[in-house]
């Protein structure tokens, strides 16, 4: 039998639930606070603008310019999106509008597996396949000599990693559009492609933007896979074949020595803070797109 009576159990369950909810709901606040307090040392001594746009990164002599990392992150993320977005959009339209249902039944587990593969394994695959591909074929094709560890390699690996996130949302969005809309357009004499282009895509546009935004945020914070193929050189990349360095890679690569140099730990926590703020900001904006989409 139970030790507590019914009402005591109710009370225990209730308290447990509310405490859990409080833990979860205050989590982003504590994340922000923890990282902010830790990077306060750096923010106190340096101007925010100098930190964000300073080009020189020499922690040993107290020079903390995050610009190369921010630029590296933006390059990698945008390039990955440019590669991934059209592929995902086309595939989502095909799977939901043209193909037979069995393809969707194959796509779902495929998306699950792609989403499940750990980022270290993606990184390993990048080293095995993408990096040699770039150094042997893609580089010479454009007349560049490169070792392969580059912005482009990271973008290619990332573009595959974000496919499951984007594709999943896109498929759901296209399936949620009432089929009558397309039928009405077809009945008015539009072709299938015209109906898709001018009715479906237009209707789904806020959702599509949101899907891309979520993918972008995901790509921006990806650590291990990028770290393994991006080259990790602190300089402003001039072309996509140059090696670069991203914010997450900066944090992951230097955790070992961060306590030995003054303010270094503070600088790394500041990098984490930037990541946190950017990811929260992006997700926030994209949610408004999704809400707009749902209201239609």
């Amino acid at each position: 039998m139970y030790i507590l009576n019914r009402w005591q159990r109710h009370w225990v369950n209730n308290t447990w639930m509310i405490i859990s909810l409080l833990v979860v709901a205050t989590l982003p606040f504590f994340l922000f606070l923890g990282l902010y307090l830790k990077s306060f040392l750096l923010l106190h001594d340096y101007h925010l603008g100098h930190l964000l746009f300073g080009k020189i990164w020499k922690p040993g002599i107290g020079q903390f310019g995050f610009f190369p990392f921010i630029v590296g992150s933006i390059w990698v993320t945008l390039l990955a999106m440019v590669i991934s977005a059209p592929i995902c959009l086309l595939a989502a339209i095909y799977v939901t509008q043209y193909s037979k249902t069995h393809l969707l039944r194959i796509m779902h587990p495929a998306i699950d597996i792609l989403a499940g593969i750990p980022s270290v394994v993606y990184g390993l695959w990048g080293i095995l396949v993408i990096v040699p591909f770039i150094s042997r074929y893609l580089g010479p094709l454009f007349g560049v000599t490169t070792v392969g560890y580059s912005i482009l390699a990271a973008a290619l690996v990332l573009s595959i990693m974000i496919v499951p996130f984007i594709l999943n949302i896109l498929i759901e969005i296209f399936r949620a559009i009432p089929v009558e809309l397309k039928e009405a357009s077809l009945a008015l004499g539009a072709t299938e492609w015209q109906s898709i282009k001018q009715v479906m895509v237009k209707k789904a546009l806020p959702g599509i933007i949101a899907a891309f935004g979520f993918g972008l945020a995901r790509a921006f914070g990806e650590t291990m896979a990028v770290l393994m193929v991006v080259g990790n050189v602190v300089e402003l990349p001039k072309s996509v074949f140059d090696p670069g360095y991203t914010l997450p890679a900066l944090i992951a690569n230097n955790y070992g020595e961060m306590l030995s140099i003054p303010k270094y730990d503070s600088a790394l926590m500041f990098a984490a803070l930037i990541l946190l703020v950017v990811s929260l900001f992006f997700n926030l904006i994209m949610h408004f797109f999704i809400i707009r989409y749902n209201r239609y």
Partner: peptide
């Protein structure tokens, strides 16, 4: 709120755990 938290990259959790 949960979706927002879901979007936070894992390295941020790592850094937070470390602090």
């Amino acid at each position: 709120l949960l979706d927002l938290i879901w979007g936070i990259p894992s390295i941020v959790y790592g850094a937070f755990g470390f602090t």
